[in-house]
Amino acid sequence: MDLMLNQFLFLGAILFCIGVYGVLARRNAVMVLMSIELILNSVNINLVAFSTMWGVASGAVFALFVIAVAAAEVGVGLALVLMLYRNMRSIDVDRVDLMKG
């Protein structure tokens, strides 16, 4: 019953894939943002697991950076969603196809 590194890594991987599913399958922009949070958190689990394994602070420091960046990302992301809502009266990401070639 040893504590394995892979336990944590697999947990991260599963969360990551669930997040990816959410990003790809959800229509609502806020839901997409939530799924992105899942992905970022799965990465944090990996970072902290490695940090503890090697006994150095670097991984945890990067996890903190990821948290900070995630906060910024949510802030800007929600501002964009608000703009989207204001201009299109909807936050369905598949209705936004202005970049269509």
Partner: peptide, 18 residues
Amino acid sequence: FLRRLQTGKVQQYGALLF
């Protein structure tokens, strides 16, 4: 030719990326 790939839908780009 490549234009047809550019549907403008973010999630399709995401699917292609992943």
